[in-house]
């Protein structure tokens, strides 16, 4: 069995949307389709139950073969201030890793100072950490583009 690796990543963005509008973009399962996948990848919602204890499911990956399944389990939703959830990533029924993700939104002028912390436990080797980090970094770049559009 491959080892288990852990790490934590912190991201911050200053976005030109007030917290309540950004909150919707970040927590609504359908709205997350517009920014949640990095680069040319797509994100498609399969199920949505966005409440504490509820689960959202997305399929993610290249548009012609979205091979990753992402299960979001909401642990805390205190809008529009903070949210905590876990995100399990699987491919072909095999768990690749899981993250504990925390959003923190603070009003700053007419916009929002956003921080996202991703605590990862990877089951397929330390190389997966770079993929988790790149996935979130690319997704937040998309979010910035959506927020500025």
């Amino acid at each position: 069995m491959m080892g288990t690796d852990t790490d934590t990543f912190h991201f911050s963005r200053n976005l030109p949307l007030p917290p309540d509008r950004l909150w919707h973009l970040m927590t609504d399962a359908k709205a997350r389709e517009a920014w949640g996948a990095p680069g040319e990848h797509t994100l498609d919602v399969m199920e949505a139950d966005t409440r504490v204890g509820g689960i959202d499911r997305h399929r993610c990956g290249p548009a012609d073969a979205p091979e990753f399944e992402v299960e979001t389990r909401w642990m805390r939703l205190d809008g529009p201030h903070d949210a905590v959830f876990t995100e399990m990533v699987e491919m072909g029924g095999m768990a690749l890793g899981v993250s504990l993700v925390t959003y923190h939104l603070a009003a700053e002028g007419s916009g929002t100072a956003l921080s996202v912390t991703v605590a990862v436990s990877s089951f397929v080797g330390p190389e997966m950490m770079a993929d988790f980090k790149a996935g979130w970094s690319g997704g937040l770049d998309n979010l910035e583009r959506v927020a500025r559009a």
Partner: peptide, 8 residues
Amino acid sequence: EPNITHDS
């Protein structure tokens, strides 16, 4: 709003 910190 509560303060939020991270640790391990």
